[in-house]
Amino acid sequence: MTDTAHGHASSTGISNVKLGMWAFLGSECLLFGGLISTYMLYRGRVTGGPRPSQIFDIPFTSVSSFVLLMSSLTMVLAVSAAHKDDDRKTNLWLTVTALLGATFVGGQVYEFTAFYKEGLGFSTSLFGSSFYTLTGFHGVHVTVGIIMLMSLVGILKRSSVPGKKAEVVEMIGLYWHFVDIVWIIIFTLVYLIPV
């Protein structure tokens, strides 16, 4: 702590960025907690339009959940490559993770479009409002994650990453895993448990 303003000797031994991401994810838990509670309260309240069990396509959603889960695996590979200072593999696995994430989001865009055509709009029923809000928030989180991954690849290639590379990759990895875990909870509560 003698020569720099911050960071190099931390009291906990965990770097600031990583600890900061942990704190942020703690906060995110409550955000999704609130949204999930809202959905659970309202999922059976349908005064018009389809009910949850009538439009969900469980096989498709299972597959897309699996794709998202796989992206967690590739993220782990990216982090481990970053720790080994293997730039090529880091970039590669980050790209693969981003692509799997994009596939998932593509699936969600499809699902939303299909539901809308079948008669479930954002203002159709309380179920509709809370379903689109919950899954939409998750989708936005995945999208932000993809943008972070792609930017990270870009930054890694074009310019030097400020700070330790592996730390930054790991931090984004934390975020990505969190988003995946939230999806597992949403998938279970929203799709699998009947009203």
């Binding site: 396509d57 096989p59 498709f60 597959v63 897309s64 699996f66 794709v67 796989m70 693969v96 692509l99 799997l100 994009a102 596939t103 989001v105 593509g106 699936g107 865009v109 499809y110 479009t113 299909a114």
Partner: peptide, 27 residues
């Protein structure tokens, strides 16, 4: 995302699921 979702909207439901897993596997 847009292209992929268009494809999914065109093919039928079960093909869609298969297509999806194939896309993931290819990546």
């Amino acid at each position: 995302i847009f292209s992929f979702s268009r494809i999914m909207l065109t093919v039928n439901k079960s093909t869609g699921a298969i297509l999806f897993i194939v896309a993931g596997a290819l990546v």
